[in-house]
Design a protein around this nucleic acid. Structure first.
Length: 144
DNA sequence: TAGGCCATCTGGTCCT
DNA sequence: AGGACCAGATGGCCTA
């Protein structure tokens, strides 16, 4: 008769060996699983790092873009201020006149032509050395 | 409502 | 690599 779970019993022996091999299989499985888990874990970490660095890159790109946008806004503000100054330096244009940038450029351009004409006329008059032309030059100096 | 104007965003290029 | 400059796209506001 069997004395229980003695290995001498063929049946028990089989069970015993079966359980041993099952244990072995279990151990092998567990250790393999542990390695796999470690690999998966490592892969997960790498993936996470990769994902984080991607996110960081994206964030960095976005913040660079935002900075560039801010610089561009500042640049355009400077340009608009320059247009405003140019507008105020145009005579016969009331301060509250609504003038587009294009209109400002056109008026400034025609004003420069006008001034150039005056200069040429004055040079012609200067060639006669008439004292009145000198006075007129002085009285017109507010243009400068 | 169409058209003009403007501010802003964006990607490309050039320069330092 | 980062900043300046530029031109195109887009959306909002205003006016005839």
């Amino acid at each position: 008769m069997s004395t229980g779970s003695t290995p001498s019993d063929p049946e028990d022996d089989e069970i015993f060996h079966g359980s041993v091999s099952a244990n072995m299989r279990n151990i092998t499985y567990l250790s393999t699983r542990r390695y796999l888990d470690k690999d998966l874990e490592d892969e997960g970490v790498e993936r996470r790092i990769h994902r984080l660095s991607k996110a960081h890159q994206k964030e960095s790109r976005q913040s660079q873009r935002n900075a560039a946008n801010a610089r561009e806004r500042a640049r355009m503000r400077v340009l608009s201020k320059a247009f405003s100054r140019l507008k105020t330096s145009l005579p016969w244009v009331p301060a509250d006149t609504k003038l587009s940038k294009l209109d400002t450029l056109r008026l400034a351009s025609s004003y420069i032509c006008h001034l150039r004409q005056i200069l040429q006329e004055d040079r012609l008059e200067d060639s006669f050395a008439h004292p009145v032309s000198l006075v007129r030059n002085f009285s017109n100096s507010h243009y400068w």
